[in-house]
Design a protein around this nucleic acid. Structure first.
Lengths: 187, 187
DNA sequence: TGGAGTGTGTACTGATCGGTAACGTTTGTG
DNA sequence: CACAAACGTTACCGATCAGTACACACTCCA
């Protein structure tokens, strides 16, 4: 079997789009940065938009897998796992390649809510929320949905503050807030 | 005095950039949407980037003035004012022209942290945080800085969830979280 | 009255946009 | 070995990008 060129395109394009932005990355730059010919790209994908969608699918898979496994590795109980989300965020923010959430940026560049790219970004957040909710059901009995929505708000807010804010450690702030909220919901 | 054309450009360009995005808005579209000639724009501004920066300055002024006055009108005590931020957010999210936070979008499209547009967006968040901190000092004595950072996280997170999320009312979720946090910090 | 300053409209620049055509080369497989 | 699919290279397409040049109209003020 030949090494899968399509996957290679998606893998490399992901890095370029994440680092450079979507509109700001032209196909010529994509060719230069990935070292893959334009002919090859358009043999596997109809349009630039299709490439973007494929990178977002890969990013969704990579990020959710990483986060889920990370919080499982760091914590034993469901409650500790919910809090470990913010420890994982802290690790993410510290990575040198950290450039914010790719889906927030995608939905910022493609704003119409019925646009495929926007819809797919929203889907990523929905899947994350579903996973958190499953865990939250083990932690509290009354209104785990509200707690989950609030934890999502903390997570997204921490990401924004990590990109734009002046706070040293938004993940730690968010985690201590999460501790308070979980305690309040449990009481 | 002639009516100030420069201000008119900034006012109208603000709407177009906010609705359409920065990279996605070309100068020709800007001319069409604003009804102002390209010659006139380049007489008042050297580059498109200068126009963007001017729109962000106006947006910062408009938004902060609106928010500050709104929470003053809605609440008497400092604690109620901090919570009224989220009532104001709810009003904002409900506006038909709501398209998320212009500064989050700007910093998503211009990612380099030393880019003037990115820096100006971060400055907006800093000014907001400073204002919240002044109020928070009246509410709690111990670590108002941390509470402020957490409220900022809630605010930014609520905006993201309003744009991408599936929750009905992220502002309400954020507000109830803020109530819990303030109570915890006060106790 | 007559510039100076400000505005519009149109046409233009070179560069870049997303995407394609043609052609030769490599590579896995029958 | 032979063939076909996959790949790279190069050149190209029309459209659009940010920005400029030029001719002309209006208004203010000396």
């Amino acid at each position: 079997m030949r090494p899968n060129k399509r996957d290679e395109i998606v893998r490399k394009a992901l890095e370029v789009f994440y680092h450079n932005g979507f509109h700001a990355t032209g196909m010529d730059l994509l060719v230069k940065e990935t070292g893959i010919s334009k002919t090859s790209m358009y043999r596997h994908f109809r349009t630039k938009e299709d490439i973007i969608l494929a990178t977002l699918r890969l990013r969704d898979e990579n990020f959710r897998n990483w986060l889920y496994r990370r919080i499982e590795a760091m914590a034993d109980t469901p409650k500790e796992q919910l809090l470990a989300v913010f420890d994982a965020l802290e690790e993410w923010f510290a990575k040198p390649e950290f450039r914010g959430c790719m889906f927030i940026k995608a939905s910022a560049e493609f704003q119409e809510s019925d646009h495929p790219i926007h819809a797919q970004s929203a889907e990523h957040k929905r899947l994350l929320g579903d996973h958190f909710l499953k865990i939250a059901r083990f932690v509290i009995a009354r209104d785990p949905e509200e707690l989950t929505r609030q934890l999502m708000i903390l997570k997204e807010g921490a990401i924004i503050m990590a990109v734009m804010g002046h706070s040293d450690n938004p993940a730690r702030d968010a985690k201590s807030a999460a501790e308070t909220l979980i305690a309040a919901h449990s009481g």
